[in-house]
Design a binder for these strands. Structure first.
Lengths: 241, 241
DNA sequence: CACTTCAATTGATATTTGTCAATCATTATC
DNA sequence: GATAATGATTGACAAATATCAATTGAAGTG
């Protein structure tokens, strides 16, 4: 696949979105599209900027569009009864968000909220259906993406169900370092409450574990900035439960 | 779609499997296949019978085959560290099992074990890939199936994370009644340990909640047989947390 | 600077859930 | 029928986690 082709299409849509938006961290799910398909997809897309804290997609609304994130960081929240929240994962630049219920009930099964300022574009779901119908490679890529999220959620479920708090906090820190920020002192931009919501525990409990880790010299923390000093220790704690 | 066509193909494969195996409780994911495709799929399939308790698929082995269940009940188990287990869901007659990691890493991410005697057939994953490539409707159906499982796991995750034990037991009982056995006094054939493993709690805790429900007159229990007497009460408890 | 505000932290305590050991019940075995 | 063996149940207790209230600390506002 010649990168030139994608670049061309990107230039067409002015803000270099879409061809890269659909990248899930590895290769672009979009590489398999023809120039015509890319153009079809990009045509009529709406580009939107959200400020930190704003809601990009709201759980239980109807899912007529797919969103791809061009720049920024967002959190995926499953809202339970009451004001209970569970942050499922973070999504960074070049992610595609189908809202969970695409292909099924056209309902969004989670809320997506901007953590930093987020640039993204909204694409009509119909176009995705069209691509699935006409381009089997694209269908395959979408299946892969879906599968990956499925496995990730499975691991999450097992972790949260079977591990004690220190193990869950370790998992979170390793996730943030290795899958989201990809560098070591990293700035989460997330409040303690939000971090706790990623582990399914209360803020107070989360803070206590964090403090233990600080005291043991495993991490150092400054505001929303976290520095992992002993990754092996975290991995050990993660495994021990 | 003329039912005759499917019937024909079923007769060809002698034991009337496959065309119906891939049904996920609603319409068959397989309805969209041509006679040739069905034949291609069914050719070289291996039909196997498992006794109750036997392992059908084992977590962490390589996933070269897809399994469809023709008859019986099986449980999907995520094995954690130690001997911790979480039963993700049950699968009944006419289900397709991709093993979790098909399309990604070709590794099975969970174990599948027979609860009753299970008749199933093993189909080479390659054939599924081939169908996805050649039949967009099939790809679409597979995406739907995947999506559905994703949403189910999401709800499970939220439930287990945010609800107290009575809520989780309620959810389990409603799941068994409305999604698996589809009748009211139902015989789970599952031990207390297994039922507990579906809720992420210990057997003793599970038994205590069950007893509370019995005492309150919400259910009656005889061995592995459960009779829901007051479904509304269960729904209320499920919502309350 | 004083004052407000809100997130972060800490401590004391209550609740939930798990662990361990004992008992009961049922079935299988001789 | 006596006797294992196994799963179900119960009780006492311990551990994990949440709740509530108070305090600290930093950032913004007048």
């Amino acid at each position: 696949m010649e990168p030139r082709r994608i670049e061309e299409a990107c230039i067409k849509c002015k803000d270099r979105c879409c061809a890269r938006c659909f990248d899930d961290g590895e290769e672009s799910i979009f590489n398999c599209l023809t120039t015509e398909e890319l153009e079809m997809l990009v045509k009529e897309k709406r580009h939107v900027t959200f400020n930190a804290g704003e809601t990009i997609l709201k759980q239980n609304t109807s899912a007529s569009h797919v969103v791809c994130i061009k720049r920024g960081l967002a959190k995926i929240i499953a809202e339970g009864d009451g004001d209970k929240k569970l942050i499922l994962r973070l999504v960074a630049t070049h992610s595609i968000l189908t809202g969970g219920g695409i292909f099924i009930d056209e309902i969004r099964h989670f809320t997506v909220q901007a953590v930093t300022q987020v640039d993204c574009c909204f694409i009509d779901s119909e176009k995705i259906y069209e691509l699935v119908s006409n381009n089997s490679q694209f269908a395959f890529e979408l299946l892969k993406l879906n599968n990956k999220q499925n496995i990730q959620m499975l691991n999450n479920l097992v972790g949260i169900t079977q591990k004690y708090m220190p193990g869950r906090v370790s998992d979170l820190l390793l996730y943030l370092r290795n899958e989201i920020f990809l560098c070591n002192p990293f700035d989460t931009r997330l409040s303690r409450q939000e971090l706790a919501d990623m582990t399914g525990m209360t803020m107070e409990s989360f803070i206590r574990i964090l403090k233990e880790f600080k005291t043991s010299g495993i991490i150092s923390v400054d505001g929303t900035n976290i520095h992992i000093l002993d990754e092996e220790a975290l991995q050990l704690i993660s495994r021990k439960g």
